[in-house]
């Protein structure tokens, strides 16, 4: 039986995974939007995510709230440590949110171009920053014996973390391209398919490099991992979906391709979680200063109260989210409700 701290480690992981899988395709679509010229195609990509992106972003807010509630020390240490990076992330998310709403309000080519750009950059920056942040966590942060971050913003931009940033960006381009292919038709569909295939190749190469780099940079992540059955389950799941993804693309079974890329994302986050556990933030100053699920958590009373909240709320969330996705199933049609 898992203890409460472990359960919340898993739940925060589930929220982050939900966020990555759902807002991830929004980011991918937004990045591809930067390279779209045709106005109709632009509107298709905006309307592909228009009804759902806002709900998708809530996974991030809830993950943030859950991290605060369950592991306040991590919330406080990591967010204040990543100060400048987080401010940039928030600005990017603000730009993305308003650009979608503002773009269609003025019928002027320059105006739309400006918001297209804001939307694209607002979609490009977050996956890179998330990747860099995760890279730094995997790498370990300079944390002293009092649990206080002693690094700097520039130190966060180390080669390993940037590599993870690029990996994350490519992964979401792949994921978003598959989603856009499901939602679009004709040339836009074909182009999205080809982007998805190319991004898959880039992803596989970067993933192998990143794994090797992780073994070199953070050997502690791999201690005893080969004896962990969970590692093997996730590893096999991930490998299978990576292999299956291009087949599904070739067979034009896009929903299978989308499920595959979702499983790739989820199992990758799962693998990171397995290798980190029970640490949440390893300390490079001294591994024993690391923030773990036990030394940085809330009390058992809070964790169990929050578990009740999650068990009451999340099934309902999943239920109506599924309903909303079903309403907007299929290709995008541009009608009077569109933006």
């Amino acid at each position: 039986m898992m203890d409460l701290n472990t359960i919340w480690f898993v739940l925060v992981g589930v929220l982050i995974t939900g966020y990555a899988v759902l807002d991830g395709f929004d980011f991918g679509v937004g990045i591809l939007h930067l390279f779209t010229e045709n106005e109709r195609e632009k509107r298709v990509s905006l309307n592909a995510i228009g009804p759902v992106w806002d709900g998708n972003e809530v996974w991030l807010l809830t993950a943030g709230g859950a991290l605060f509630a369950a592991f306040p020390v991590v919330y406080a240490t990591v967010f204040s440590g990543f100060y400048i990076a987080l401010m940039l992330l928030l600005l990017a998310l603000i730009m993305r949110a308003v650009s979608m709403e503002f773009r269609s309000k003025v019928d002027n080519a320059k105006w739309r171009k400006m918001w297209d750009f804001a939307f694209g950059i607002g979609s490009l920056l977050p996956p890179v920053l998330f990747g860099v942040a995760i890279g730094n966590i995997l790498h370990g942060l300079p944390i002293n014996e009092k649990g206080i971050f002693t690094g700097s913003f520039l130190a966060l931009l180390n080669p390993y973390s940037i590599l993870i940033g690029v990996l994350s960006c490519v992964m979401f381009i792949m994921h978003g391209a598959i989603y856009l292919a499901m939602k679009s038709q004709n040339e836009q569909h074909d182009r999205s398919m080809s982007v998805a295939s190319k991004a898959w190749v880039a992803f596989v190469i970067l993933y192998v490099i990143s794994t090797l780099a992780s073994i070199v940079v953070s050997p502690f992540l791999f201690e005893g991992i080969l004896k962990n059955p969970l590692f093997w389950i996730l590893f096999i799941l991930m490998t299978l979906s990576i292999v299956f993804l291009p087949l599904a693309l070739k067979l034009k079974r896009l929903s299978y391709a989308f499920i595959s890329s979702s499983v790739v994302i989820a199992s990758m986050i799962g693998l990171m979680a397995v290798s980190l556990f029970p640490r949440l933030v390893p300390s490079v100053t001294d591994l024993s200063y690391s923030l773990t699920v036990y030394n940085s958590s809330s009390t058992g009373r809070t964790l169990s109260t929050m578990l009740i909240v999650a068990l009451l709320g999340m099934p309902l969330v999943i239920l109506y989210t599924a309903f909303i996705y079903r309403v907007f199933k299929g290709k995008v049609t541009i009608d009077e409700g569109s933006c």
């Binding site: 309307n47 228009g50 009804p51 759902v52 992106w53 806002d54 709900g55 972003e57 809530v58 807010l61 809830t62 943030g64 709230g65 859950a66 605060f68 509630a69 369950a70 929050m306 909240v309 999650a310 709320g313 999340m314 969330v317 109506y320 989210t321 909303i324 309403v327 907007f328 009077e336 409700g337 569109s338 933006c339």
Partner: peptide, 23 residues
């Protein structure tokens, strides 16, 4: 804050999309 996300944010954001795009 977490409860706000679970009980409220998902609800308002999800259904706003449905309200605006689903007429």
């Amino acid at each position: 804050l977490a409860a706000e996300g679970v009980f409220a944010f998902f609800l308002e954001s999800g259904f706003l999309g449905l309200y605006l795009f689903g007429r």
